[in-house]
């Protein structure tokens, strides 16, 4: 388990990361979201030890993290970069060996990862000759090549087309099965699709965190009522609810004392009902709400 405890980073008089705490549990994908400049990259750099923390600490399995433990992590920095004039396979072997793999093992792993991305034919091409999308694939391969003990990925999906995203998600599911995985992203649909847990950062502070399901269910219970041929405006007179929105025969209401089944009974008594459904807040809305 990877844990940030009260991490802060101060540049001069500016606090970029302010008392940030969260945990990344094994086998769970944790999404790290926040607007540009919220402090995601700075936090991830402190997790990886590339940047020192002004205050706070990083824990690995409950104890203060060591350089040795960090070396076993896979890291994809926000500022992408590999050796531009180095051959793909050789490059991956180099990174694997840098993380402690023996040469033969490193060579096999590098070949397997290139194979997953359909790049085995190009193993002796230099990175510069690849398209940007393929370069990104090699970048993620470099983070995975040494069978990491945890993954910290800064915007791993940015710049990828939908097919490439799918291929990368496949890979992450197989490779990161029971590892702690933290990734940051702007693409909330992807976060929604992939993540078990969520940490929302705003202006250097954690403004929301927890499981995605819990976050989406938070706040009042909201329901959508759709009548068939009956105006929904009568709901304004019903006690125990507040009406958030009415549009013709459709209304969105928040329960305020009334139970869901009482709402259904009242609606059926009023006229033909097409649908009574719970409204789950989309992440984008939660995001907008908590970072406001």
């Amino acid at each position: 388990m990877l844990e940030a405890r009260s991490l802060s980073r101060v540049y001069g008089s500016t606090t970029v990361v302010d008392d940030v705490s969260f945990t990344v549990s094994p086998g769970r994908v944790t999404g790290f979201v926040g607007a540009n400049g919220a402090g995601k990259t700075t936090t991830m750099r402190m997790l990886m030890g590339v940047l020192g923390a002004s205050a706070g600490e990083v824990l690995w399995n409950g104890a203060p993290i060591t350089a040795e433990a960090r070396r076993s992590f896979g890291y994809m920095p926000e500022e992408r970069g590999l050796y531009p004039r180095m051959k793909l396979h050789e490059q991956l072997v180099f990174f694997a060996r840098l993380h402690g793999l023996a040469t033969a093992d490193a060579a096999a792993r590098a070949a397997a990862l290139l194979g997953h991305f359909g790049l085995e034919e190009r193993r002796d091409d230099v990175l510069d000759d690849l398209s940007l999308g393929n370069q990104q694939r090699v970048q993620i391969a470099a983070a995975l090549v040494h069978r990491p003990a945890a993954l910290v990925l800064d915007e791993p999906f940015s710049g990828l087309d939908p097919t490439a995203v799918d291929s990368m998600i496949d890979l992450l599911r197989t490779e990161a099965g029971d590892l702690p995985l933290l990734f940051s992203s702007h693409q909330l649909d992807l976060v929604e699709r992939l993540c078990d847990d969520l940490v929302v950062l705003s202006r250097g502070r954690v403004v929301a965190s927890g499981t995605v399901a819990a976050l989406r269910d938070r706040g009042a219970d909201r329901y959508r009522v759709v009548h068939d041929g009956v105006e929904a405006s009568w709901l304004r007179d019903l006690r125990g609810i507040t009406v958030d929105d009415v549009d013709g025969s459709t209304a969105v209401v928040s329960l305020d004392g009334l139970s869901p089944s009482e709402l259904v009974s009242a609606a059926v008594a009023r006229g033909p009902v097409q649908e009574v459904a719970r409204v789950r807040q989309p992440l984008s809305e939660i995001f907008r709400e908590v970072t406001r």
């Binding site: 590339v50 890291y75 970069g81 590999l82």
Partner: peptide, 14 residues
């Protein structure tokens, strides 16, 4: 290594 940004991965490993 700074120009190609690879240094950040290197620094995390070594």
């Amino acid at each position: 290594e700074k120009e190609s940004r690879v240094v950040e991965i290197l620094a995390a490993a070594v």
